[in-house]
Computed example of a mutant assay.
Amino acid sequence: MHPFVRRAPWLAVLAAVAQVSCSDFTECAPVDAASAALPERLSGTGLFADGSMTVPGADVRAFTPQFPLWSDGATKRRWIRLPAGTRIDTRDMDHWQFPEGTRLWKEFTRDGVRVETRLLEKAGPRPEDWRAVAYVWLPDGSDAVATPAGQRDALGTPHDVPSASDCFGCHGGTPSRVLGFSAIQLSYDAPADSLDLEDLVASGTLTEPPEGRFTVPGNDVERASLGYLHANCGHCHNQQRPESDGPRCYEPRNSLDFRLRVDRLGALEETPAWRSGKDDDFEPGRPDDSKMIQRISKREAGWSMPLLGTEKVDADGVALLRRWISEMKR
Results as ranks from 00 to 15, higher is better:
84 A>D: 13
135 Y>G: 04
13 V>E: 12
169 G>C: 11
289 D>E: 15
194 S>C: 15
327 E>S: 07
281 D>Q: 14
95 H>A: 07
14 L>A: 12
175 P>W: 02
87 R>P: 05
93 M>R: 09
14 L>K: 13
233 C>F: 03
54 T>Q: 15
291 K>S: 13
11 L>A: 07
186 L>Q: 00
70 W>R: 08
264 R>P: 14
266 G>M: 01
98 F>P: 00
217 P>M: 05
88 I>A: 03
260 L>I: 10
24 D>K: 11
39 P>I: 05
210 P>G: 04
153 D>V: 08
182 S>N: 12
88 I>T: 02
252 P>T: 04
193 D>V: 08
97 Q>D: 10
137 W>N: 10
209 P>D: 09
77 R>S: 15
216 V>I: 15
216 V>L: 11
168 F>L: 04
17 V>A: 14
267 A>E: 07
220 D>I: 05
295 R>S: 13
163 S>C: 07
108 F>T: 05
214 F>Q: 11
273 A>P: 01
293 I>T: 02
232 N>S: 00
214 F>T: 12
114 R>P: 10
230 H>K: 00
247 P>I: 01
165 S>C: 14
316 D>C: 08
28 C>S: 06
140 D>K: 06
246 G>P: 01
261 R>F: 11
262 V>D: 07
131 R>L: 08
235 H>G: 09
329 K>F: 01
48 F>Q: 09
284 P>Q: 02
169 G>E: 08
14 L>S: 12
317 G>F: 03
48 F>T: 12
243 E>L: 14
156 G>N: 03
26 T>N: 14
231 A>P: 11
196 D>P: 03
275 R>K: 04
150 G>F: 08
183 A>K: 12
82 L>F: 03
25 F>K: 00
250 Y>N: 05
129 D>A: 11
232 N>E: 00
155 L>Y: 08
327 E>N: 08
60 V>S: 07
23 S>E: 11
262 V>F: 09
130 W>A: 02
215 T>I: 04
138 L>D: 10
269 E>Q: 11
222 E>Q: 15
168 F>T: 01
3 P>I: 06
162 P>C: 06
151 Q>K: 13
6 R>P: 12
127 P>V: 04
323 R>T: 14
174 T>V: 11
242 P>N: 06
119 L>W: 05
